[in-house]
């Protein structure tokens, strides 16, 4: 794949854990690639698979949904609801021909800034290897 391909990746981050972890990455002056655009939600349980399909349709090369670890949800088990939905969504994405590396559901607690950095680096590398999703070209086929 071309070296100058800079994927754009959307992150849906739960306010209490993952968003806080992203903040912590900042306050700890960690570094991660600038390709991740965060949309804050109060809970990963708010994330509707429709948004993820919409993101891919608009040109996302990857989507990351990040929530609290099971058992740690600020809303008891919103993250479990996310897990259920994303499990089914993954099957559907596969049928749509979207490689599994492009979509991840990760548990990132407020103290795991380093985990976010690791996940971000991994995802970026994998997606760079895959190349762009090229949704617009697919659309031009009708």
């Amino acid at each position: 794949m071309s070296q100058d391909f800079e994927p754009r990746i959307v992150v849906f981050a739960c306010n209490w854990c993952s968003y806080a972890a992203l903040d912590l990455a900042g306050t700890s002056r960690m570094k991660y690639p600038p390709n991740f655009l965060v949309i804050r939600v109060m809970c990963s349980g708010r994330v509707d698979p429709q948004f993820i399909l919409e993101a891919f349709r608009r040109g996302a090369d990857g989507v990351l949904v990040a929530g609290c670890h099971p058992g740690d949800c600020h809303y008891i088990e919103g993250n479990i609801k996310a897990l259920r939905r994303m499990t089914l969504l993954k099957k559907v994405l596969k049928e749509f021909g979207i490689e599994e590396e492009r979509f991840r559901l990760e548990w990132i607690s407020a103290s795991e800034a380093d985990k976010f950095v690791r996940v971000a680096n991994e995802m970026l590398e994998e997606i760079k290897r895959l190349g762009p999703l090229r949704i617009e070209e697919a659309y031009q086929h009708g």
């Binding site: 992203l22 903040d23 990455a25 900042g26 306050t27 960690m30 600038p34 965060v38």
Partner: peptide, 18 residues
């Protein structure tokens, strides 16, 4: 918009990207 914790601080090595 969080342009500090989630932008300037984590991309201080790349002004254009930030």
């Amino acid at each position: 918009v969080n342009i500090r914790e989630q932008c300037s601080w984590v991309h201080s090595d790349n002004r254009q990207a930030a």
